[in-house]
Each structure stands twice: as structure tokens, then as C-alpha cells.
Simulated scan of single mutants.
Amino acid sequence: MTRHVDDVDREILREMARDGRQTVRALARTVGLSEPSVRERLQRLERDGVITGYHAALDPGSVEADTAAYVALRYEHSSESKKRVTERLRDEPAVLELHEVAGEDCYWLKVRTSGTEDLADTLDRIRSIPSVTGTKTTIVLRTVFERPLRPDGPPAEGK
């Protein structure tokens, strides 16, 4: 269950997004609260699922994952098929994101591989999942920018 995030929580989250490696002491000083108060708020934000983890942002080329692609996937419609497909996609290391979508397709996936040969092997594994009825793949030529989710949400129009 996600709780309401107040202005103090947003300030803490903004600072964490800016520098996730800062100490609780530095964070407390920046937001003007005591260390125990900040620690308690962080623990509550984690427990309530607002903070879902702490991650290093990696350069894909440095870890041999410089080929990105989006895959539109369709499968036979049944709850058993959906479960089987989802489990197999969750186990596929190249699949970074899995989105259930409305429209012609069932899922959109973001995958990253070391190159086109690795991408072809990944697509072969995905297409071999029982119940998968089709895929369409779009290879990313260049990532212009990516941005993490901000504590204030998406910018309002006109800002």
C-alpha cells in the first residue's frame, strides 16, 4: 500500500534523486530535519513502496549492453498463457522492462543486448515461449536522453 507523500518527503526524495549516495547526516542537514527523523521517513518510504530500491546508473556500452530494442508482443489470451509468458519474460535477463498495453499488442518490452547477434538469440528465445503468437521489433539507433522519475512527477504543461 502506497502512502501519501507530503512536501517534506518530496524534498527528501528530490535530494536522494540528486545524490543517492549522501549520508543520512548530510541529507538531514540539507532538508533541515534531525537524523532520526530523516532515517524514520526513509524507512517508511521504503516500507510503503515509494522508494523501491537504490541503484547505480550504468553506461550500457561499458557493460556490453549497447544494443537496445523495443519488442511489441502478442500472446494467446488466457490467464494461463499470460502467466506463462510473464514468468518466462521475467527470467529473460535481456528484458529490462515489461509493460502491459492496450491495443493490438499485449506487451511492450525494452531489451538490451551486446549486439544484433545477441538480440537475434534473445528474440528467438522470446518467440519460442508457448502461447506467443507474434512480435514486432524496433531497434534503437541512438538514445537522445533518458530521465529517471522525479519526486515531483512529470512536469506540468507550460513549465
Rank of each mutant, 00 (worst) to 15 (best):
D48M: 02
S79I: 05
H99L: 14
V50P: 04
T86C: 00
D118S: 15
V50H: 01
R112H: 11
A57K: 10
R47G: 08
E46T: 10
T86R: 09
L42Y: 02
E117P: 01
D48E: 14
R127L: 08
I129Q: 09
T137Q: 09
L123H: 09
P36A: 10
G115L: 04
L89H: 07
T135V: 13
S131M: 00
D59P: 00
H55E: 10
A65I: 00
E40N: 12
L45H: 09
P130I: 01
R125W: 00
E64R: 13
S128C: 08
P60F: 08
R88K: 12
T52D: 09
G61K: 11
S62D: 12
R112V: 10
R112A: 14
V95E: 04
L45S: 03
A120T: 12
T137V: 14
G49S: 07
V50E: 00
D59L: 04
C106P: 00
P93C: 06
A94S: 15
R125M: 03
R90A: 12
V85S: 06
E100M: 05
E117W: 05
L109F: 04
R44T: 13
S62I: 01
V101E: 10
K82N: 02
K110Q: 13
V132M: 10
S37A: 15
S62N: 11
R125E: 11
H77R: 13
P130M: 01
R39D: 07
S114L: 07
L73N: 06
D66Q: 08
H77A: 11
L141P: 02
R74H: 03
L141N: 12
Y54K: 10
T116P: 08
T122C: 15
V71I: 15
L45M: 10
T133P: 13
R90T: 10
E40K: 06
R125Q: 07
G103C: 08
E100F: 00
C106T: 13
L141D: 15
D118V: 03
D59I: 08
Q43H: 13
E104H: 11
T138I: 12
S128E: 14
E104Y: 14
L45D: 00
C106S: 15
I139V: 15
Y107A: 01
R74Q: 06
V132D: 10
E97W: 00
R142C: 08
Q43W: 02
R142S: 13
R74D: 05
V85I: 03
K110G: 07
V144E: 13
E117N: 06
D121L: 11
L141M: 15
P60T: 07
D91L: 04
T143D: 14
K136I: 02
R112F: 10
I126S: 08
E117A: 13
V71Y: 03
Y75Q: 02
E46N: 08
G61F: 09
A69I: 07
S79H: 02
D66M: 03
T116W: 11
E97S: 08
R47K: 14
S131V: 00
W108I: 14
V101D: 05
S62F: 07
D91Q: 12
I126P: 02
E40Y: 02
E40W: 05
P93W: 03
D66W: 01
V95A: 12
R142N: 14
L58K: 05
